[in-house]
């Protein structure tokens, strides 16, 4: 695999394991929070995760809830993204682009277009919350459909792009948007091996979730004043298993470095896998066909 995206994969906890086709996708039941700012967009991490989840050897399904861009936007970007991975030492597979429309037809990619949805405006009390409930219903419906048609072992990645617009939908109420987030978060512990809460009967409890949904959220860090952010951002960071911060270089703009990523992977402690928490920090450069990641000072 080329070095460039390997760093990012490593930081995200995506492991290429040729013995299992599923494990190369995103770690299940995990919550990833991407925080970016005006100067540096973190959207490329979403594109990368989208790409990794849809291209082989991963067989995961993706639900993309987009409030910021239309389908064609993602389609154009994903067509150009190149990803290479090694199945073995001698056999390297190149995957050219990724056709979202085709994946949509195969029912592996689900796009929830929330651009045009007209959420009820302020002043209508409870109705404003109704919009978020409907959005949640939509997401859960898709997830249910996937697990009923593909079986419960399917990895599902839910991507929210982006969370600040959820707040707009909730008429600026942080509490309502956190309610919505809490429901989405609850999805990560279900829909893996059937509905885990349901299956307990006769006092026998279900096995731990091996594969639940994973949740990826893009969020802008710099749109809050200090006080507001204390509650919301802290709670989101606390809930997340992986926190990714995209920032501009402290030293200012550079031609061949577009910013730096700090990835805090809190590690997984469950029965099957266990990884220690790790912090990665590297620079990145965005290109037409992908992202190049490198440690500071290693680029000539």
């Amino acid at each position: 695999m080329d070095r460039s995206s390997q760093l990012l994969d490593e930081a995200l906890g995506i492991v290429d394991d040729t013995s299992s086709m599923v494990s190369s996708s995103f770690p299940s039941s995990s919550v990833v929070l991407i925080e970016d700012c005006v100067e540096t967009s973190g959207a490329f991490v979403i594109h990368h995760i989208l790409k990794r989840s849809l291209s082989p050897p991963s067989s995961a399904a993706v639900v993309l809830v987009s409030l910021s861009h239309p389908f064609s936007h993602y389609d154009r970007i994903l067509r150009k993204l190149v990803h290479t991975f090694a199945l073995s030492l001698s056999f390297v597979l190149f995957s050219q682009g990724c056709n979202l429309a085709a994946h949509r037809d195969n029912r592996r990619f689900f796009f929830c277009d929330m651009l045009m949805v007209d959420f009820p405006r302020q002043g209508q009390g409870n109705v404003s919350k109704g919009g978020l409930i409907e959005l949640y219903a939509k997401i859960q419906k898709v997830v249910e459909d996937i697990s009923s048609s593909f079986g419960s072992g399917k990895c599902i990645t839910i991507i929210l792009d982006d969370f600040s617009l959820i707040e707009v939908a909730a008429n600026g109420s942080l509490n309502h948007s956190l309610d919505f987030l809490r429901y989405c978060y609850a999805l990560t512990s279900e829909f893996g091996l059937g509905l885990l809460v349901h299956t307990s009967c006769g006092g026998v409890y279900p096995l731990p979730s091996i594969q639940g949904c994973s949740l990826v959220i893009l969020h802008h860090e710099d749109i809050y004043s200090a006080e507001e952010s204390a509650a919301l951002i802290l709670q989101m960071e606390y809930l997340a298993d992986v926190v990714i911060k995209a920032e501009p270089l402290a030293t200012g703009l550079a031609a061949d470095v577009h910013g730096q990523l700090t990835v805090l992977n809190k590690g997984i402690h469950d029965q099957l896998r266990s990884s220690k928490s790790k912090v990665h920090n590297f620079h990145f450069k965005l290109r037409e066909n992908g992202v190049e990641c490198f440690y500071p000072g290693t680029q000539a």
Partner: peptide, 21 residues
């Protein structure tokens, strides 16, 4: 939310109380 949504038919599953929960 899920209870209401299930009753209105928007979603199929909703957590239910069972033994121990």
């Amino acid at each position: 939310w899920r209870h209401r949504l299930k009753e209105s038919g928007a979603i199929r599953s909703c957590p239910d109380s069972s033994s121990g929960v």
